[in-house]
């Protein structure tokens, strides 16, 4: 086998694959954050907790109701999305007339509650969640060994990301949504129920986070803290990419995942901070973000 700069190819491609998987979570989560921010004008700090809740929902569905992975992939986002809709109606909707910062503080409080509750009942050691039997094993691609499940995560994430892009950019519902992002009052004047659109958007964004959580459950353990550190990296991803563009969020998410994977191969000590360093560089060179429109 050939070697690249002294790195065995299995290690290199293995880390790149892991980078792509992390990148797909960055992409789905930053996409949800961007959609929610576009319409609600709040940064949803609960997003990481909702990702964690998606993974827990999958675990609970399996262990309490016997619903396997494939069912959880559909049911968990709906359940967690519904919880999100209740929160939006009861609490978050009371803050729309205030500054964005209050939304950040409120959702931060909600994230603390969710994390605390799950830590209290399930501990912090993490619960194992087996991968579906159809996706066990792997393929030998010649240059590397590709576990089937990891390949599935990347494919599923790409499909969900582009489905979201399609809904928002190419359907009538998406057109309402884009219009309401630009000018909610005018859209309301045309007879469209904007508050309901906002609620559904929040539910959809939360559902995306929960979907990512279910995808992550077999790879990482189901753990109450799994969302907390991830969401901060996703914030950095959002700052780097800017929240103006759907495709921008997807490209930035996957790209940064890959860069993180490469860093893990060539300079492992830097892998935890590389995204923050890139954020610093972007802030110096193009403060609005790579795909950002406003400052």
């Amino acid at each position: 086998m050939f070697e690249l700069l002294g790195i065995p190819p299995q290690a290199l491609f293995g880390q790149l694959l892991l980078g792509l998987i992390n990148g797909s979570f960055y992409a789905i989560l930053s996409l949800g954050l961007a959609i929610i921010f576009g319409l609600l004008n709040i940064i949803n700090f609960t997003h990481g907790a909702q990702y964690m809740m998606g993974a827990f929902a999958a675990w609970m569905l399996l262990n309490y109701l016997g619903i396997p992975y494939w069912g959880a992939l559909i049911v968990a986002p709906i359940v967690v999305g519904a919880v999100g809709i209740v929160l939006e109606r009861l609490l978050i909707s009371r803050l729309y007339h205030l500054d964005h910062l209050y939304g950040l503080l409120l959702t931060f409080g909600l994230a603390l509650i969710a994390t605390g509750v799950f830590r209290n009942f399930y501990g912090i050691s993490g619960l194992p969640y087996g991968m579906p039997s159809q996706l066990s094993g792997g393929q030998n691609l010649g240059f590397m060994f590709m576990p089937n499940y990891r390949g599935w995560v990347i494919v599923a994430s790409l499909v969900v990301c582009f489905a979201t892009w399609f809904i928002i950019e190419r359907t009538r519902l998406g057109a309402y949504l884009r219009a309401a992002t630009e000018n909610p009052t005018m859209v309301g004047a045309f007879g469209i129920n904007v508050p309901r659109l906002i609620t559904l958007t929040y539910g959809f964004g939360v559902g995306l986070a929960a979907f990512a959580g279910v995808l992550a459950a077999p790879i990482y353990n189901v753990n109450p803290n799994m969302g907390a550190d991830l969401i901060i990296v996703v914030f950095a991803v959002v700052v780097i990419g800017g929240m103006g563009s759907i495709l921008g969020s997807i490209v930035t998410g996957f790209g940064l995942g890959l860069i993180e994977g490469l860093t893990r191969v060539f300079y492992p000590e830097g892998s935890a901070v590389v995204i923050f360093v890139i954020m610093a560089i972007v802030l110096l060179v193009k403060p609005a973000g790579l795909f950002g429109r406003t400052v």
Binding site: L105, L106, G109
Partner: peptide
């Protein structure tokens, strides 16, 4: 972990 939960509740109520 109740500390975390109570702090979260105070956040929500205060906001």
């Amino acid at each position: 972990d109740w500390v975390t939960i109570v702090q979260g509740v105070i956040f929500v109520v205060a906001v």
